[in-house]
Amino acid sequence: MIAFLFAPLVVLVVNSFNASRFGGEWDGFTWSWYEKLWAADEVWESLVITLKIAVSASLASMLLGTLAAYTLHRFRSGLQSAHSMLITLPLVMPDILMGMSLLALFVLTGVETGLLTIWIAHVTFCLSFVTMVVLGRLQDFDFTLIDAARDLGATRTQAVKKVLLPLVLPGVVAGGLLAFTLSIDDYVITFFVSGPGTTTLPLRIASMMRTSRSLPVINALSTLLIASTFLLAALSFRLQYPLRSGNSES
């Protein structure tokens, strides 16, 4: 099963070094696709746009998501049930519907599509994921620790800052990293709300896929992207499950 999950990715990585154009057989090792990729300025421009959006969208969704997770965890009320439903629904909404509905909003309100609209869309779909990750972390948090800090003379702000924040921060960062990966990865929603001059990396890859000349270059680009995803995933995983990773702190 793991082989089924990884085989296509392995083929991509191997082919990125393959001199043969379609990768049917091994025609010898080459760096030339990477050289072509290095020379493709439009790819790097797209990367810059993608990173700009990913960083700003993950920061905003970290803020909104952490606050949402805190209120969901701390309060029990009709408001929070509605809040919880609103947070969960985007998780199961197909991308095309989210993209389509945001496009309808922007067209009807006369907002020109561009960087801002992509950012709004990305914050919207990242928000729920961040909330879920932080909420998971909060559920492991023992709130009597706050009471203990208060009993020991800490003010409310101090208790939150010195006790709650350090213990929840790894969850927040993990949520932010997830948001970052989701934002970099998104194609469908971005496609709907992008405008002229805002070709993000996935949009660029999609347009490269239409011209067969650049196919091997996509292999090289994919290999680099897969490698960075691996690093990010490992980092996020470490942050999310620090206690279970072998040391007996718990």
């Binding site: 990715l9 990966t181 990865d185 194609y187 996935p202």
Partner: peptide
């Protein structure tokens, strides 16, 4: 977590 398009592209070349 690796890019959705890349995964489709991988199958396409496979």
């Amino acid at each position: 977590l690796s890019n959705f398009l890349i995964r489709i592209f991988a199958w396409k070349s496979l």
